[in-house]
Amino acid sequence: MLPAAAPALPARTEIRDLAFFPEAAHQCGPAALATVLTWSGLSATPDAVVKQVYSPALKGSLQPALISGARRHGRIAYEIAGRDALWQEVAAGHPVIVLQNLGISWNPVWHYAVVMGYDQPQQTVVLRSGQTARQSMSFHLFDRTWARANRWGMVVLPPSQLPATAEERPFVAAVIGLEKARQWPAAITGYRTALARWPKSLAARMGIGNSYYAMGDLAAAERAFREAVSFHPEAGAAYNNLAQVLMAQGRATEALPAARQAVALGGPLAEVYRQTLEEIRKRLETDAAGESARF
C-alpha cells in the first residue's frame, strides 16, 4: 500500500518543473536519465547520453550503464530498493528512475520510467513514462510491474546533496564511483557531503586526498591526509598515502616517519605500507649517495 506506513510523509506530492523527453523507439533509458540529469541542474538530452548508456544489440540500457552514465556527468547515482525508499525520495523532491517489467516474468518487457509523484488518497503513482508526460497509474498496477523488476530504482543528485534514504557505506561507495569515473571535483564535493553527515568516515577523508592527488594538487592532497591522520590516528592507510604524497613532493625525510607509523599500525594492507617504507628508504639512500658524490 501507499505511504500509510510512513506517517511523516505527505499524503500526496508531485515534483514540478521536470523536463519531458518523449521517448524514441526503445530509448527509455536515455530519456529517463536525461530527465533526472536535467532536474539535477545539467543540460542533458537523451541524444547526448544515448551513446553512454544504450546498448543497440540489447535494444535497451542496462542498469549499471545508467549508473555509470550519471557518474560520468559528475552526478551521484544512488540505488534504492523497495517501496518505503521510493516514497521517501519522492517526498523529498527527488525524482526516481524505476525499472518496470511491463510484460510477464517469462516474457519480460523492460521499461524505465521516472516516478515524479504519488497520491495516497487516490492510490496512484505519477510517472514520466515513454511518450506520456504525466501518467497517473494505479499503485496496484505500478507495484506489480515494479516488483517484477525487483523494485529497482535510482536517484541522481548533485554531489552536494544526500539522498533521503542515504546510508553511509552505499553513499560513500557511490562517491567512489565518481572518483573512478575521473570526476574528481565532484567526488571531493561528494566526500565532503558524506563527512557532513558521517564525520567519522575514514573512506570519505581518504577519498578527498586521493581525488586531489589524482588531480595533481599535491598540496591539497597533503592537507587532506594530514586531516585524515589527525582524525584517524589508528589508520595506517592514511599515514601511507601521506608518506607517498610527501615523497611525490620530494620530501622523503618527512615521509619517513609517516611511513614508519603506517608499518607500525599494520592491518590488512600492511604489505602496501612496507613497500612504501622501502621506497622511501631507497630514495633517501640515493639522495645521500648523490650528496656525498657532490663533495
Partner: peptide
C-alpha cells in the same frame, strides 16, 4: 598517477579492504 606507485591505498580499499 596512482599506478606509478604500487604502494598507494585506493579509497575503495579503505571502505572494503
Amino acid at each position: 598517477p596512482q599506478a606509478v606507485w604500487a604502494a598507494w591505498v585506493e579509497t575503495e580499499s579503505v571502505l572494503n579492504p
